[in-house]
Design a protein around this nucleic acid. Sequence first.
DNA 1: ACATATGCGTGCGGAAGTCATATAACGGAC
DNA 2: GTCCGTTATATGACTTCCGCACGCATATGT
Lengths: 179, 179
Amino acid sequence: MRVDAAHTANVVGAFALLLADRMTDEVGAAATQAPSGAAALSALRHFLPADPTVDLVRQVLGLTHSGTVRLVDRLEAAGQVRRGPGPDGRSTTVHLTAAGRRAADRVTAARATVLHDALAVLDPAERRQLDDLAGRVLLGMRRGPGATRWTCRLCDTATCGRLDGRCPVAGPDPPTFSG
Amino acid sequence: MRVDAAHTANVVGAFALLLADRMTDEVGAAATQAPSGAAALSALRHFLPADPTVDLVRQVLGLTHSGTVRLVDRLEAAGQVRRGPGPDGRSTTVHLTAAGRRAADRVTAARATVLHDALAVLDPAERRQLDDLAGRVLLGMRRGPGATRWTCRLCDTATCGRLDGRCPVAGPDPPTFSG
DNA sequence: ACATATGCGTGCGGAAGTCATATAACGGAC
DNA sequence: GTCCGTTATATGACTTCCGCACGCATATGT
């Protein structure tokens, strides 16, 4: 079986598309929110500092101001987040409610389930190979933190290794949205 | 560096999400259409028999009837497809115009560019590894052809190996939407 | 022939997001 | 201390894309 670069590109493209579709579907269902809502819940749970401002959420999700306001409106209407006063008199902060934390955890779990099921056909050595290869490709695709649709959205920081140097993306110049 | 299943799942999830995002963006721009329009052009160019009916397009893309009608409306308004009479008095067929074929080819090329750029950090042996691993995961995730969002949407049948047995998905029970 | 199923199109509405704009608060210049 | 540009949030009008319910035409089985 001959395998050239074009063939690999095709297989990897189908692989990424199918996995992303499944994750999007399951994660949206778990959040009872549109995909962007699920991403927001995950970001609030995993990346963002406590009580981030609306604009910080906007930067992470790569939406417009008004789109973010509408998104927060939806999450607030669903009882998953609450707005609060900001450190600044003009800014408002967003924080998860208990229901929001539960929804965010469901999102993380749903994503993990899709991925575990998909990778179950590989044995541990093969998973290590895939981990290494995917990690290096990810690192190569890294963009600045300002890029829309942040790379690590939906990641589970408890296991991604972000905190202990095992995240392939958090390299010498780790993404940050604070500066 | 310890690598467990949860870590691999995270990396693969981020990898799939980022690649899918890039493909969606580039492919939509190449088609001057929404993502579903790009998928339709690709399907018409690569999978579907000549002059498929609107309903066959619907099955492949996993939309509702009316959604498909609107989609075909958009493509027709953009001069990328034309409707024609069907074999059946009640059905209408869809076929690409010259502009539609060009747009479909741009879609395929845009997808390939994203993937080639991403995989450029790997050497040929590593690409072969990834090809094998991703192909096996894909095979494990395969669903029936009726599943919404068909697995191979956007694939490039000229290089995917569908025709000569190298496509990991076209196994002993190849997807078909004719029966 | 008549009932049912199939396939296409349409009116209506909703979900999600953008653009332009409004409102309010901060920060510096002078 | 007042004025003015900037920042941050919110709102209104609009667009895009899609689904549901329905109508209509055609095909198919009894």
